[in-house]
Design a protein around this nucleic acid. Structure first.
Lengths: 155, 155
DNA sequence: CCAAATAGTTAAGCGTGCTTATATATAAAC
DNA sequence: GTTTATATATAAGCACGCTTAACTATTTGG
């Protein structure tokens, strides 16, 4: 049973990853963006605004690396970098409309195939899948917390 | 129903990706290897042996880029590059034992959490999950073929 | 046998992403 | 008010991953 379970999971894993990541990688290539740049944009979008040292901490890199990375994104009109009025040592980083569009479209590139998959399923199948995924989702929450570097694939 | 399905899938996607990729990324950092290097090693392992232009084609880069990448992996004793006896213009690329170990351990880093998850599930739950995943696996096979760049996440 | 094709190598150049070091402006602490 | 701490920017350096260009050795085709 365990062997079948693991084998089935690994099959799914391969399909899932290929479907999710291939379109996403192509989107990045088409838009001349790297994984590190996309990661930064995701982080900034999720936090609403951010400072350079916040970002550096999340990415686990030096402030100088973060500053230069932000520079390149600002130059591409994907971010704005403004002075923080309550502490002028700080900068506020926010996505531009262009940046927000890029992030939204990249997520659609990554997840769009799920909609195509949903169309092929009837209600019974969907219910079975939802039920199974909910089991896995809740069990996974009980595992030891996941540690390690930030993963743009999960953002 | 569709909304619930997609929402449940996206929740799972987040968990799945974070669990799979975080340990993998940490493994790469710990071993001083990049995603492109790992991708190359996966491709070479899957094909048993490979030539530089094969690899370049799979990676969708120039032969010069592939040659230089291989150089760096050979220097780290992860690959051997030998003359092909049946066509001396060709090189044969093979993983060293050290290289095979690296690949195997990186896959374990990526998939090890599935075993932890399996332990938390009883037989009934596993059967439900297997059944649901098999639905999805077979439906996904019927979708339009996935196109785009090679995805190390799925190798 | 010779010309054309092929596979790989090397060089030079570039962008990205990182590091450490240094400098400046601002805030906090005393 | 002055010293210390903080946030960021800039410079220089490096590795990686790519590109094009030029070259060499080998194979194929006529």
């Amino acid at each position: 049973m365990d062997e079948l379970f693991l084998q089935t999971m690994q099959n799914w894993m391969g399909i899932f990853m290929r479907r999710s990541m291939s379109k996403f990688r192509q989107y990045m290539i088409d838009n001349g963006l790297s994984m590190t740049q996309m990661t930064s944009m995701f982080l900034i979008m999720h936090s609403g605004s951010s400072s350079i040292s916040d970002l550096a901490a999340h990415l686990d890199v030096s402030n100088a690396a973060a500053s230069q990375l932000i520079d390149r994104l600002v130059q591409q009109d994907l971010l704005t970098r403004t002075e923080n009025p309550s502490d002028r040592r700080n900068k506020l980083l926010e996505l531009t409309e262009k940046g927000k569009t890029i992030v939204a479209k990249s997520m659609q590139a990554r997840q769009g195939w799920l909609q195509e998959l949903a169309i092929t399923l009837d209600e019974t199948e969907k219910k079975k899948i939802i039920s199974a995924l909910e089991i896995m989702n809740s069990k996974a929450e009980e595992l030891a917390p996941s540690t390690g570097p930030i993963c743009p694939e999960s953002l």
